[in-house]
Design a binder for these strands. Structure first.
Lengths: 280, 280
DNA sequence: CCCATAATGTTCATATTGTTACAATATCAC
DNA sequence: GTGATATTGTAACAATATGAACATTATGGG
């Protein structure tokens, strides 16, 4: 018998025993996780057919989850499902009700990013990054998440990507030239260091791509291209999710432009990973 | 055969023929409407027993609704139900012969995060982080963005937050004790290093909080609490935006729990920034 | 009241279900 | 290799499902 409560979801059920699953049982688990209604509606034969195994294997799977048969497991799943159906919070019907405001703000910001970068807008930002000899990344402390995402992603598709730590501005700057590009992040409470560093880059002839939250940002006047990002608040902090998303879209576009160069690079990295067995 | 489309709800179905229902059929209709899962889950006998009638009456009821048997009616109800059950993020895939637009996939994943962490779910994840003496953060190369966001955010609200770099596992591990918590990130192509390191933590009695993409993840069995995150693809890469968002929600909740401690800490950091004139 | 007809219940054939016991196969330590 | 063990598939069975033909009961107009 299963020790877990009556309201345990399918995922939790599977999770509890995920380590001791045999190969076929794992396939069964994957199937029922991918299509949750299979367990609730399907018969043993249905499942066996779907997974491509025999009926007893399905029953044994149910046993391993802690039930004394498929029927019992199905009962559990069904009661859990109808339980969720009756709860109003699980709005399966229409989203007509009041959605929590935080949710709207976040969704809005994400949508805004997708809107802003539709069509050719990403390309405008990506173009200099594609062409650049070296790509510098510059950010304040609060917008590091985006910078970090950009750095690691961009490194996958091209070489010469370098992040600027707050202290090493000086040494790094001496390497920068007019064929380079700097991507600068800064948001509302604009940081002096970032702004001044960006200016130095600009003066050195480096193309400046700015990611910021307002046309009034000090970065905008320095920038050759720039992009506005809405920064929603999550609790006491600013969310970097929109920035991260933007960076990822940018990376994808750069990869697309670089075409073979990028894929070759990715393939090499992948091959290296395979060889050193980093994956399970 | 029924003339209505495949997505007609149960209520519409009975409404269409409500005028020509016999008394017992009407009772059946009432029962079915009162408890929608009856049709989806129950057998003919179940329903007959519930309504207090004979099995053939149920079949005839199905016929009157326009189906050629109970089985067909049940299929209809089930497909309608599973359609409604599937969250918007999944609905996209099911519709798709054409590849779903990136926008929807991303929005879906973001919504899924917000759904998954509704109610008290975040609190469950946050609680150990609040209580912990030290908080370790562990992640593979591809999920660094989330780890980074968590590290920098969490450092704002509490002390003793430490990230694990891939090389310094050994030294760091010797410091970890049973009062600590480790937050582990890993997604689909699960990395050997992360899994083994997590295991070492778990064996040392450290509370393991896992952020991963499937209950079948190797992290789940080690975890005391875990959280499932959908990882959408952006171009050739996986997006970390959902993970980042999740981390930020987590941080906000930890901050809320720590209340005064956190605000004091934030104030001190802010004051320091002011004094060193980091802002413009 | 009586009959025609609608409504419902009973019985049964057939198919399919879930389950168990057993055989075959693959896996792995030695 | 070889034997022990774990994993999966096959065959058999009792129980149950559905749907159809038939029997029964209720209903309402003449």
């Amino acid at each position: 018998m299963n020790i877990m409560g009556p309201d345990t979801s399918t995922s939790d059920l599977v999770a509890a025993v995920s380590s001791e699953l045999t190969p076929t049982e794992r396939r069964i688990a994957e199937a029922v996780l991918a299509e949750p209604t299979l367990l609730a509606f399907g018969t043993v034969s249905d499942l066996a057919g779907r997974v491509g195994t025999s009926r007893p294997s399905i029953v044994r799977f149910a046993n391993k989850l802690g039930f004394d048969g498929y029927t019992t497991l199905q009962h559990h799943v069904r009661s859990d499902l109808s339980h969720r159906l009756s709860r109003p919070s699980e709005r399966i019907r229409s989203d007509g009700k009041t959605a929590p405001p935080a949710r709207d703000v976040i969704n809005g910001a994400i949508s805004a990013v997708l809107d802003a970068l539709e069509d050719g807008r990403i390309a405008e930002l990506a173009a200099p990054v594609v062409r650049a000899e070296k790509v510098w990344i510059l950010s304040g402390e609060t917008s590091q998440a985006g910078a970090h995402a950009l750095h690691s992603g961009l490194s996958m598709v091209r070489s010469g990507v370098r992040s600027l730590e707050e202290h090493s501005f000086g040494t790094a700057l001496s390497d920068a030239g007019p064929c380079d590009v700097v991507v600068v992040f800064d948001f509302f409470r604009y940081r002096r260091q970032v702004a001044t560093a960006a200016r130095v880059f600009a003066d050195a002839g480096v193309t400046v791509v700015a990611i910021t939250d307002s046309p009034l940002s000090p970065l905008v006047e320095l920038a050759d291209t720039w992009c506005q990002i809405e920064v929603p608040a999550i609790g006491p902090f600013d969310s970097s999710a929109p920035v991260v998303l933007m960076c990822e879209l940018l990376i994808a576009d750069v990869a697309k432009e670089l075409q073979d160069d990028a894929t070759n690079r990715i393939d090499r990295i992948e091959a290296l990973w395979e060889k050193t067995e980093v994956f399970l």
